[in-house]
Design a protein around this nucleic acid. Structure first.
Lengths: 357, 357
DNA sequence: CAAGCGTATTTGATCGTTCAAATCCGAGGC
DNA sequence: GCCTCGGATTTGAACGATCAAATACGCTTG
């Protein structure tokens, strides 16, 4: 009654039914141009009737490539609203599929543990390379993997080893700058920034975007003191925003470094009787489901594009890369190039209207 | 300058440095009791100094087991607030790690495509088994995998093939029942249900929980007509709730089948000037980040426990399972058992206060 | 017509591990 | 002193694929 667990057919079986040798079958699969059309047809028919599929382990052993890409899933941060991980992961898997590569997921307690796990996996031939998520400022992982000799591509980058490996990053500064541009166009002149404490690469870039954009519009002088920082929590955002709103010259608009803080700002506004989008404009970052629900404007990272780009970049540096048109004997140690992709502002009710009063 | 890509040492290398044969090295790793202590010590030292790691592909080829578990990641549903996928995935990876199994991720366009992908992966020896997510009512996947002969464990179940494979499910009825109990204890007597259209297993169970709990409290008569249904969107939830609130005898509490609908209900209440938690109690389902932010009570699925249980169940049915104490020649075709785990209600401001008026 | 060449196909070896069977060796037993 | 026995260890084969070298075959060429 059990579904027969007949062993899968092998190249030898296919060879027998097609009346050719193992190697010819292999050639039909991996180098069809070497095989005469009529032979190929015969082999392909045998493959179809037997339902032959090459054994992955055997292939991996012989060619020393598993077609697997290692990726560490981080624990879900209960505080954060992020749906970025989800989207990124799916984008990676989807992009991998097109190149017949799969993701191999693993967990780790911290960066050091992650490095150890990568080393084990790579040295055991379990994966061909890695995708690193959330690289920033002083991250030990790029150096560790470079030392290990394992191919990898990163989402994010450090200042120091950006040239030594492929990376893709979101232009965070451009994101907050776009938010400021949008708000200024609506007539706002006092635009605050709710940020994380200094030190995180992402947070600092977003702060820079806000500052330079204001400067460009000649508004930095009146907004300079409106840059305040706190940890990434809704309550924290509410506290920071309350403080701003209670000042003598409160801002008419707030750019938040994250949706979490933006949600907090929105709550603070409501508590103080300010109508969101009329008395106070708020723009968040990451376009989380929560922002959508609350009708908050937000900067959306093109994370699907990032995922695709990361996978593509990784595949390119894997040994025996998929023939990229004419791989003109790549210039030995050409510095790896990164790619910066621009996020897009999603305007919703919280910032759509022109400035009030 | 490159990190040396010296080939990893093999059993033969270890054997040479320890002055023994390949097989002895293998025995030290897989059946230490066969090896004399002093020999074992010598081999272990050689392993340590060389930094030997068994090659996964070679091992997989020989023992016909990849130590990989296939899992399909579903596309991120932009409408939904779910963080369940995220949490489930991480739980799976974490549970797998403890048993030296990794997740292999793949994508698929629909159930049929998923089945095809599973077949390819399994027949190619790419994975040892699968975890299926979101099985319900007439789902073709369990039957397909049974036919394929591939081991799998499911989150969710169908009525028909529940006995033929291991599964773990959340007791959805118990979740909504707990919500009703909680509301009734706060004095509510007219408790509405905002549900999905009939036909989904999960949705129907949640509706049943609501109904039976009300019946238990002798309140079904006055609430029976308060069961209304719509698609899973915030706008839809708002529309349904508005309709309820505009009736002659509006409910004082709403149990929603999802946080998405619950958020809609909360918005509708606000629009109508009802204060959430005072004039109207709302309980959602899934305990999403959005519910936390909005202070909505919600039924939380113990998804981490589900993930662990699913992996454990899968590992048990894999050939040559990890020695479960004394595997007393398992009774041939014992029907597979399922496990139902109870969700927990998280009470927040939206339903904490006793009924008003 | 034999030599030469290029293409199509086959054979043997190999990737690194583990299984199955064979061998080795020291301790007893008769 | 010879044989048996059992545990420790080794040898050969196999898992299923691909690489490298060898062979077969059809065509041109001098």
């Amino acid at each position: 009654m059990e579904a027969a667990d007949r062993p899968s057919p092998t190249v030898a079986d296919v060879a027998d039914t097609a009346g050719v040798s193992r190697q010819t079958v292999s050639n039909v699969l991996n180098a069809p141009q070497r095989v005469r059309p009529e032979t190929r047809a015969r082999v392909e028919e045998a493959i179809a009737t037997l339902g032959y599929l090459p054994n992955r382990a055997a292939r991996a052993l012989r060619v020393q490539a598993s077609q697997l890409i290692g990726y560490r899933v981080e624990p879900v941060h209960e505080e954060s609203l992020a749906s970025i991980h989800d989207r990124f992961l799916h984008a990676l898997a989807e992009a991998g599929r097109e190149a017949d590569h799969h993701l191999l997921l693993f967990t780790a307690d911290d960066a050091e543990d992650e490095i150890a796990a990568c080393a084990r996996l790579y040295r055991a031939g379990g994966v061909d390379g890695f995708v690193l998520y959330g690289i920033g400022h002083g991250d030990p992982r790029p150096q560790a993997l470079l030392r290990l000799g394992a191919p990898f591509a990163a989402f994010g980058r450090t200042d120091v080893d950006a040239g030594q490996h492929p990376w893709v990053d979101v232009d965070n500064a451009a994101g907050t700058a776009a938010a400021v541009d949008h708000l200024v166009a609506r007539g706002h002149r006092r635009v605050a920034f709710l940020g994380w404490p200094e030190g995180s690469q992402v947070g600092d870039h977003r702060a820079t975007g806000w500052r330079t954009a204001l400067d460009k519009h000649g508004l930095l002088a009146e907004s300079a003191e409106l840059d305040i920082r706190g940890d990434d929590s809704v309550a924290g955002g509410a506290a920071l925003a309350s403080y701003l709103l209670d000042r003598d010259h409160p801002p008419t608009a707030i750019v938040a470094v994250s949706d979490t803080l933006a949600v907090g700002a929105a709550q603070a506004a409501r508590v103080r009787g300010r109508v969101l989008g009329r008395d106070l404009a708020v723009v968040g970052f990451d376009d989380t489901p929560t922002a959508r629900v609350l009708d908050l404007s937000s900067v959306r990272q093109p994370i699907e594009a990032v995922g695709r780009a990361v996978i593509r970049a990784l595949l390119e540096i894997l040994p025996a890369a998929p023939p990229a048109a004419d791989t003109a004997a790549e210039p030995a140690d050409a510095p790896h190039t990164g790619r910066l992709v621009a996020p897009a502002l999603v305007v919703r009710a919280s910032s759509a209207a022109p400035v009030h009063r």
